[in-house]
Every structure is written in structure tokens, then in C-alpha cells.
Design a protein around this nucleic acid. Structure first.
Lengths: 345, 345
DNA sequence: CAACGCCTGTATAACGTTATAGAGGCGCGG
DNA sequence: CCGCGCCTCTATAACGTTATACAGGCGTTG
């Protein structure tokens, strides 16, 4: 192995404990010896063995962020912020990709890797309340997203029902009446899909619009390909909507593509809106209207609460926080009227 | 802390070593005792402390993938493949985002975290040959991308000069003559930008086209915003190219947007090509022609070589591998002729 | 029946670190 | 000049694991 405390101690002619104190500043060390030790450290190129340190201290300085899709830009952007925030607090954030796989999520929650991290920020998709309650690991857990509710852990998410309502209200406000929802989930898996569905129905009802099942298209997953397929299905099934609400921006981008391929004009014929505000939506043609969650708030809050739990600063009861969101209007909903409406006005 | 080997040993009435052998299968254990131990493990919910195991074994089972931009889809897609491959070989891959920061890269190469990982796959941007040579960590390092050459480590990359040439040749083959290059680097930082620039110039020369400095636009970074800005600058500067080669797909997407905003038609007026084959390019309007590196090969090869080094299976001299690439033609270069050429044919 | 080997299990010494208890030197007040 | 406290520093016991050396039982072989 590399050089250890012992090597430094011998070189500097002091004890192990003194070197440790120089490194950690845990207890004061005389100026003369400190310098000698420091010199030895520099000369030999010492860096502490984190495994040993952890074994002794019970802390690694590592926290994990577990997300279901690494190549979903929403999570990538979230991760980037979280990494910065963690670094600022003296922690290293490692990313874990569960790939929306149930086994992977369980392993993460309770597997042996739990010993190596001080805490976990988790966006669960395939596991539910019971699994989280059955968790035996004793390091702190912060949940993000809508996967699981009513568990004794800090929880940060946007109000998905309200966000979804806001999206639909916007479409209604620009005169759309046949609004499709792409990305309903067939199984009972994704909680947030259910919530966004609920917001969709509530907003329709509030606007006095009928709920038409044939305008709701479930998808297997939530990527661009799924959005495109869902939109194509909708187009071939006959009923052309005048607006499309995508479960997230990726679904919306896929829908955008399918509409373009089919020769429909966005937003004139069909308006499109998504959720997430990924950068891609600011560069697509047309640019994508979206509901923007406050990613900065979500990521920073999650990290801060986790660290507070780890360090014992925070002992209050678990907190559930709903972070704000915002409608960002772009080209995909820029026309106030549909082609169909135009003659009437 | 949680339950340890000792707890299991007491519960099952055997020695520590026996429990360890049951867990690891390192040495045979009698069937009766094995069952008793296994039962104790299940009842108490034991999972090994990885820090302790690592301290003893000198291995963590963790490998790191260090990339300069987490929210660059190219790296996200690469990471996803690498994670799968690593899992298949019994390793856990943790991602490290250097954010193209020199300090972060140095810390990763030689900082204290090196003790916690068995090996590192590294895509350096801000550090060079000397820094890599000066590295003191003794765990294996595999380099990907063009950051550093001629160092005693395995190295995997595409032939950037050839890839760049292929892109230009394609543009030439569809009749383009005023081909811009977006994403040249002003400083000496990104090696691959230099190489792609070289390919650009070589291909121009081979096609008998003049090299025009005013068609080459450097950028600070390599994201969508940088591509858009570069394209805008080029448009306002007066000389309209009939084709644009982006340093990567993100730059190309930004250029696409700037062209659309300015009312130019792609590909009729200006054709656009990038490098990376990110999924976004299959959904943009128009879809983006690109040079597709074999991400699968790069990621899997990198992981496999690293693991081979870690386990000592591979002792041969460091290998430099150039992985294949492929032109994928999409809408952004689909027209055979430019608007300007059309009257002539 | 002695000698040998195999099979199963145990005791124990590391791995590199940090926290605790304590040792020695030295100044200072009584 | 003794006793006390402070300031440095040291010795050492953990943390949870795995590898090594060894011990006992029992069957096989010459």
C-alpha cells in the first residue's frame, strides 16, 4: 500500500497520535513538531486512508444521490447542483443509478453499500412505503420526488397535482379544449404519474372540459422515444388534440417530434407543454413551454437536510417540503388561438 | 453501529472466522454449521462493513468514472453503459464530476479519495501529461478521450482527426464549400478541439477548399449556449456559411437554434453536423447528422481493461485503443444541393 | 497399529486510523 | 520546595474484517 501514518511518524520522529493530530487538528500540537510532521507529510506524499478512517470514525464524508435515470437531463441537472452543494459542506456526493430497477433500489436502501455512505438522497420509483419502512440501515435518508409518502424521513418534492393543474390551466387559457395527456402509467408504479394525472383531471373539470380517456396515453417509460410513440399512437387513433401535456419534458420533446414528422404545426395546430425545464427545451424547435420546478431549491435543500441529520444538528421531526414551481412560456404554446378557433375570432 | 460478524458468531455459537468463510466462501464450511450461520445472518440482518473489508483486503469493489460535464448527454450515455458493464463484473461504479475544473481533476487523480476506489476511468480536460506522470496513487488508471497522450496507462479514444475529416468530407460530398467550424478552443485546453480542428483543415485541403479563419469560431465551453452564441456571432459577422461543423452535438444543436431563429433553412441554406450522436439529435427539428463514436465499445472496453488491471489479469504494457466511429446521416444534411447551387444543376 | 492426510473449525494478528488515558516537563502560587 | 495544573506528547485499545497458522477428529494406507 501507500504511505501511512506510521511512515510519517517514523520519519518525523514522533508518535502516531501526533501525526493524526496534525492532520486533523483534533488536539493542539506544538509549532515545531507540527512543522516537522508537515514536512514529512509533504516529502512522502501522505494521504489518509479513508477506509480506515471511516472504520474508526463511523463517517465517510460520502453521501449518495440515487436516481432512476442518469441520462434524463432533469436528474443530471439536479445532480450537478447537489454535487456543488455537497462539496461546499465538505462532503463528496456519489451518484447511484438505479435504472428504475426494483432490485437496484432495494440494494441501495439496505444493501452492503450503505456502510460506505453517511447518508442517502433517494428518488424511489419501484419501491413503496413498506420497503422504506422496513429499512434497517441507520444512516439518514432524504427522499425526493413523489415515490413514497408518510415515512419517517425528510421529503422534498414539488406539488405535482398543482404543477399539473397549472400546465393544463395554461393550455386552457390559450383556448385549447381537447388536451391530451402523454405518459400516464399503466401499472401502479410511478406515483408522480398518478398525481399529474389527477391534476390533469382536476383542471379539466375546473375548466368545464370533459375528460376523454382516448386522449390519455400511457407509456412504458418516460423518455423521448416513449413520447414519440405515444403521440404517434394518438395521431393514428384518429382524434387529433389541440394541445398535448407531457408527463415530463422528454415525453413532450418526443411528442414534438412526432407532430413535426406528421406535418402538424406546433403550436398553431397542437400546443405542447412539459414539466422539468430541461435545457434541451430552450433549444428545440419550437422551444418548449414547461413547468419549471426549482431544481436549485430541491437539490440544495435535500443536501442540506441530509448533512444536518448526519451531523446531528437537526433532530426535529422529519419534514416534508414542497418546493415552488413556475410556468415558463415558450414557443410551443405561443399562439393564443388554435387554427380551428381562428375563423371564430 | 449495526450488527457485525461478532454478533453473528455469538448467535450461531461459532468463531468469527467461520462466519467470514460462510459469507465469502473463501474456505469450505460444513453444511450443518453453514445453515446455522446463515440463519443467524438472516435473523439479525447482517451486511458486511465495506470499510473494514476494504481496510483488510485492500479492495473496495468501487471504481470511479470521472467526467468533465455531467449534464452533457454524451457522458451521461457513456456512464450508463459503464455502470452496467461494471456491475456485470462485480464492481460498483461511482461517478465523479470534475466540472472541467483543474483543481477537481488534480484532487481526483491524487487526492485522498484515491484510497476508496480500486481504479479510475478518467476523461481529463484541464491537466496534461506531466500531471498524470506525477501521479503517486498506485491503483490503475484508464484514460478516455484525447486529453493526455504518451503516458503509461491504458488509453481509449476515437481518432478525432479522422472523425473530423469524415464530417467535413460528408459536407463536401453534398456540395458544401463554405464550411464553418464552431467550437475551436481559444486556449490550449481541450486537446480534442485541436485534433478536430486539424481534421477540419486536412479535409478542406484534401477537397481543394480554402481555409478561411473567419469561418472558425472559438467557444469558451462546449454546450448548447456556446454553440448558439458562436453561430450568432458568425451570422452577424457577415459571412454566411453553407455548412456548419460543430465540435460536438451540443454545439451543433445550439447552432441549429441560432439558424432557425435567424430564419435560415436547415439543411437547404446551411447544413449542420456534429459529433457524439446524443439522443437529442434524433429528436431535434431537423434531426441532426452526426459522427457517432462507438460509446458501447469505449465504455465497456474502459471498464474491462480497468478491472483486468485491478485484478492483475492484465500485465501487458499499456494499450492505446482507437474505437470505431460512424457517420449517421439525418435531416440536417439531407439535401444534396445548396440553395445557391440549385440553379446550376 | 502407526503414520499420514484431509476435513472442519478456531485463535489471532494484522489493515490504518482515531479517541482515551496517562506520562513527563515546566511554571507558579502557597 | 512541594503540590497543582497546564501544555505537549505518547502508548494503546478499539473499529470490523480477512488470512494465516494451528488444533483436533477421523478415515485410509502401508
Amino acid at each position: 500500500m501507500g504511505v501511512s501514518l506510521k511512515d510519517i511518524a517514523e520519519r518525523a520522529g514522533v508518535s502516531l497520535a501526533t501525526v493524526s493530530n496534525v492532520v486533523n487538528g483534533y488536539r493542539p500540537v506544538g509549532e515545531r513538531t507540527r512543522q516537522r510532521v508537515q514536512q514529512a507529510i509533504d516529502e512522502l506524499g501522505y494521504s489518509p486512508n479513508l477506509s480506515a478512517r471511516h472504520l474508526r470514525r463511523g463517517r465517510t464524508g460520502l453521501i449518495a444521490l440515487a436516481i432512476p435515470e442518469l441520462n434524463n437531463p432533469y436528474f443530471a441537472e439536479l445532480a450537478e447542483i447537489a454535487i456543488r452543494e455537497a462539496a461546499g459542506l465538505g462532503y463528496t456526493l456519489v451518484m447511484e443509478n438505479t435504472a428504475a430497477d426494483r432490485e437496484a433500489e432495494l440494494l441501495l436502501l439496505d444493501g452492503s453499500r450503505r456502510h460506505i455512505i453517511d447518508g442517502l438522497i433517494f428518488s424511489p420509483v419501484r419501491i413503496g412505503r413498506e420497503e422504506v419502512l422496513a429499512r434497517t440501515a441507520d444512516n439518514p435518508l432524504v427522499l425526493i420526488g413523489e415515490g413514497v409518502h408518510d415515512v419517517p424521513h425528510d421529503h422534498i418534492a414539488i406539488d405535482n397535482v398543482a404543477a399539473s393543474r397549472a400546465a393544463i390551466q395554461h393550455l386552457v387559457s390559450i383556448g385549447r379544449r381537447r388536451i391530451a395527456f402523454l405518459g400516464a402509467t399503466s401499472g401502479g408504479d410511478r406515483q408522480s404519474a398518478h398525481l399529474r394525472m389527477r391534476g390533469y383531471r382536476e383542471a379539466l373539470a375546473a375548466a368545464g372540459l370533459p375528460y376523454r380517456p382516448q386522449l390519455v396515453v400511457p407509456t412504458d417509460a418516460f423518455g423521448r422515444v416513449d413520447g414519440r410513440r405515444a403521440m404517434r399512437d394518438l395521431l393514428t387513433l384518429g382524434e387529433l388534440p389541440d394541445a398535448v401535456f407531457g408527463y415530463n419534458d422528454l415525453i413532450a420533446v418526443g411528442a414534438l417530434r412526432a407532430l413535426t414528422e406528421a406535418g402538424h404545426r406546433v403550436p398553431e395546430t397542437v400546443a405542447v407543454i412539459g414539466i422539468d425545464d430541461i435545457e434541451e427545451g430552450r433549444f428545440s424547435s419550437p422551444t418548449l413551454t414547461t413547468i419549471a420546478p426549482d431544481k436549485e431549491a430541491i437539490a440544495r435543500l435535500a443536501v442540506r437536510r441530509l448533512v444536518a441529520r448526519i451531523e446531528g444538528t437537526e433532530v426535529a421531526a422529519p419534514l416534508t417540503v414542497q418546493t415552488p414551481f413556475q410556468l415558463i412560456r415558450r414557443e410551443s404554446t405561443m399562439s393564443g388561438v388554435t387554427d380551428a378557433d381562428r375563423p371564430d375570432r
